[in-house]
């Protein structure tokens, strides 16, 4: 989700590969087409504020630890319409990506400071501090840790007065599909909390759509 511009630094470029959803997702609740809704707390010292947020998963490539989708911020004060951004995610699988970001202006200390905000991270903390968590096998861990980085605005121009310079530390719960995250941008308010829940769009249960790239 975009935040107000404070500093005009451009987003980092990521070289990633996608091959759609040809491999099964780590968890069906995180598969392509799944939708989530909730809020992002953008409070500052001046005032309490939360923006409504919708997220949709569009691509998942486990081989490359890759996930992507869109994020829609609904009641952005400066925008006439909901603002949609496209983000790409790094899944911390200790093969493609570790808990240490190593870019986007985040130091190891920043990483630990953010990851420790998630209760489900505590059993992993000592190992992560020792070796970045390289020796951990997270394939059956009921939480999936990710970094989501917004790449571009889908429906507004870059001159909209908003920035996507930062990125999110994200923790996804495989049990109930809830997502919590913290936005990190040295130039924005710290620890803006993102809270999302899986949506069933008026249904009495869960529905799963599919596509396959050739």
């Amino acid at each position: 989700m975009p935040v107000r511009v404070v500093d005009a630094s451009s987003p980092s470029q990521v070289l990633g590969t996608t091959s759609g959803n040809n491999l099964p997702p780590p968890c069906t609740l995180l598969s392509v087409g799944q939708a989530f809704s909730g809020t992002q707390n953008v409070s500052s010292l001046q005032k309490d504020e939360a923006w409504r947020v919708n997220v949709r998963i569009q691509g998942c490539d486990l081989d490359h630890g890759y996930l992507c989708g869109t994020m829609e911020a609904l009641n952005v004060p400066m925008a006439d319409t909901p603002v949609i951004t496209f983000w790409e995610g790094e899944i911390v699988d200790t093969k493609n990506y570790t808990f240490f970001t190593g870019k986007w202006g985040a130091t190891t200390e920043d990483d630990i400071k953010h990851w420790t905000k998630f209760a489900s991270f505590s059993p992993l903390q000592s190992q992560v501090e020792a070796d970045g968590g390289k020796s951990l096998d997270l394939s059956n861990y009921p939480h999936i840790f990710m970094r989501w980085k917004e790449q571009y605005f889908v429906n507004v121009g870059t001159d909209c007065g908003l920035t996507i310079a930062g990125f999110y530390y994200v923790c996804f719960s495989c049990s109930d599909g809830s997502i919590s995250g913290y936005y990190y941008d040295p130039n924005s308010s710290p620890f803006q909390k993102l809270e999302l829940k899986t949506t069933n769009e008026g249904r009495f249960g869960y529905s799963f759509s599919t596509y396959e790239l050739q």
Partner: peptide, 13 residues
């Protein structure tokens, strides 16, 4: 075209 459109990022754009 098939291969270049394997990009979810560009499909999304």
């Amino acid at each position: 075209l098939r291969n270049v459109s394997r990009s979810v990022k560009n499909l999304s754009a």
